[in-house]
């Protein structure tokens, strides 16, 4: 499988602190790929660096062969990369419809696609004209993901979508992400190993700003020793 995204030796600083120490990663095209790691390991920084929200100091980031490391965030987004941040990035003063409309390139919806999104996340349809700040945490997460897929994207970066969500909503999210992954590539950052295991095809474990393990999710899920070595903190937490 060819890589849609390739990071090589990426170093990123936040202020005077170096957070990423040479992250190298290949994300194959299609399916769900997961970055796991404990708090502060560099997961969010990796996603934000890919998105251009924090600039890498060294290294290359290639998307479909094009170096995007020094591109501005809007230019990266226009290449077909969507981002769902940890805080969901919902515009609370805008209605659900306005949030969705903003994510379209010309302000108009593809009706068929919108209906599919409504089928995946019925709450989006139900609260279409409500201000987004009035939604619950789970509904906001659904809106954030819906916004990312309102138009066809090649790659969606999603940062800890299960954070603070109830188990029933997480189950719905798993089903939704499986459906979304049929047409696009998802790079997911997670701490919840059970959620990651249910979705991921490949996995990379990051620790102290370095990739310490790469492989298939099946291999990690079946190997207790590997889990214990790389994810003991995460497994204990969940």
């Amino acid at each position: 499988m060819s890589a849609i995204l390739r990071l090589e030796g990426v170093h990123t600083n936040i202020a005077q602190y170096q957070v990423l120490h040479g992250v190298s990663l290949d994300i194959p095209e299609g399916g769900v790929h997961v970055i796991l790691g404990r708090n502060g390991a560099g997961k969010t920084t990796t996603l934000r660096t890919i998105m251009g929200l924090w600039k890498s100091r060294l290294g290359t980031i290639q998307f479909r062969g094009q170096d995007i490391a020094q591109l501005g965030t809007p230019d990266i987004a226009r290449l077909g990369i969507a981002f769902v941040p940890e805080n969901m990035g919902i515009f609370g003063g805008l209605t659900v419809e306005e949030n969705m409309r903003l994510a379209t390139h010309d302000g108009s919806f593809d009706t068929e696609r919108l209906e599919r999104i409504h089928a995946i996340f019925p709450a989006i349809k139900q609260f279409w004209q409500k201000p987004a700040h009035a939604l619950s945490g789970g509904q906001k997460q659904m809106l954030a993901v819906s916004r990312a897929i309102i138009e066809k994207r090649d790659l969606i970066l999603i940062d800890e979508p299960t954070k603070g969500l109830a188990p029933s909503i997480i189950r719905n999210m798993i089903a939704a992400f499986r459906e979304i992954a049929e047409e696009t590539t998802i790079l997911l950052v997670e701490q919840n190993f059970h959620f990651a295991k249910a979705l991921g095809q490949t996995v990379a474990v990051i620790d102290d700003g370095r990739i310490v393990h790469r492989g298939s999710m099946t291999e990690l899920a079946e190997d207790a020793a590997l889990q214990s070595r790389f994810l003991s903190l995460s497994l204990e937490a969940h």
Partner: peptide, 8 residues
């Protein structure tokens, strides 16, 4: 930041 992440 989110406006930029949406491509604007």
């Amino acid at each position: 930041e989110m406006v930029e992440a949406l491509g604007f």
